[in-house]
Computed example of a mutant assay.
Amino acid sequence: MKHPLPAHPEHICVLRLSALGDVCNLVPTVRALQHQWPQARITWIIGKGEHSLLSGLSGVEFVVYDKQTGLAGMRELWRRLGNTRFDVLLHMQQSLRASVLSLGLKARTRIGFDKARSKDWQHCFTRYHLEPHPRAHVLESFMDFARRLGVDPAITSRRPEWGLPIPEEAYEEARRLSGESPYLLISPCANPRLRNFRNWSAEGYAAVIEHAWTQYGLKALLTGGGSTKEREMGARIVALAPPEAVIDTIGGISLKTLLALIDRARLVIAPDSGPVHMANALDTPTIGLYATTNVERAGPYLWRHMVVDCYPEAVRTYLHKEVDELPWGQRVRHPDAMSLIHAEDVIARLDILLSESVNEA
């Protein structure tokens, strides 16, 4: 039996496990649901690392699933939620793992992506589906769940809201690392996954750092995870840049401290990765470096106009097509794609943002 969508849901389940940038882009949908139904309970099933970023989000009950625990972890989560019945499950993770996980959840009805946006047979695991929305940004794709559930268009069309929680101890650690002088934050590496060619060059970052230091007296604070590749990139940047202009924190901070550092930064520079979406959520000026990913689908939502966008050129150079000939969201998986980004283009955007901040002051 296909139950109708609830007009006034009392308990909403959000299923989205990963990744850092995506969960940041999902938060405005949660805020829209809260505006429409302020008394409704919202339970978000989320990944372990992503929870460490969003923990404390107001009005949300988190249930953490660590994908490293596999089926045993799923069974434990099902046991934990065995007596919980949701009015609606918003299945917002396009992966077979998440779909299998959804099978053990008790929900009156389920909403998933439409066929055009569905992956890994997710369409088969849900009863209701989104209305088609060709060429939607990731944030808008998530907001489509609120629209499908019946949230007022006046709410879903307004400027996105986040309100990410940052504890005072994270700000204290950020001040300890950065000092009181203004700085720009650079997160040079994307997630070190197979064929994830999103990283720019150490030489390019060093040129930008030297310009920011000599022209504005701004130090660059480097952030990132603790992988060998990220540490090596940080070491290379430090070796090339003016030594007094760099603070290297790669591999040494929590995600909450990273949020605090981003919130205090004059601006953020990073490739398509979590930090550009964190900066976007905190309304910190953001320069995204994009060549392998379509900016209109996955750029920092409020700062897409400041992205150094070489994706169209990369599509022509390495795929021998135009962007509108590709499936929406297709990446350019070529190791040389990011070399299309030139330091002078990044510096030009840095100059624009810093001159705007000076004029506003």
Results as ranks from 00 to 15, higher is better:
A235L: 05
L258E: 13
A212H: 05
L261F: 11
G252F: 10
T214G: 06
L258W: 03
A190H: 03
I262K: 09
Y216N: 12
L240Q: 02
M233D: 04
A212I: 05
R236L: 04
A220Q: 03
I250D: 08
A212W: 04
R198W: 10
D248Q: 07
L255I: 12
R193P: 03
G226H: 11
I253L: 09
V268M: 05
A260S: 13
T223N: 05
L218P: 04
G224M: 09
T249M: 11
E230G: 08
T257P: 15
A265C: 12
P243S: 13
R231C: 14
Q215M: 07
F197R: 01
L221R: 06
A265Q: 12
A235C: 01
A207D: 12
K219N: 00
G224K: 06
N196E: 11
L221P: 11
V238G: 00
A265G: 08
I269C: 05
S227W: 07
G226R: 13
T257W: 03
T214D: 12
V238Y: 01
L222E: 07
I209V: 12
G274V: 03
G234L: 10
D248V: 10
T249L: 14
A206D: 00
S273E: 08
A265F: 11
N196M: 02
K229Q: 15
R198V: 09
P242E: 08
R231K: 15
L222T: 06
L258K: 00
A241Y: 00
N191C: 10
E244A: 14
I262A: 13
V268P: 06
W213L: 12
E232C: 12
G226V: 04
P242V: 09
R198S: 02
A245Y: 09
G217D: 09
L258P: 12
K219R: 14
H211C: 01
S201V: 01
F197G: 01
T228V: 15
A260N: 11
W200T: 08
E203H: 13
G217M: 07
H211A: 05
R266P: 00
G234W: 10
G226I: 07
V268K: 05
I253W: 02
R193Y: 06
M233L: 13
G226T: 14
G234K: 07
P242L: 08
F197S: 03
P242T: 08
T257F: 00
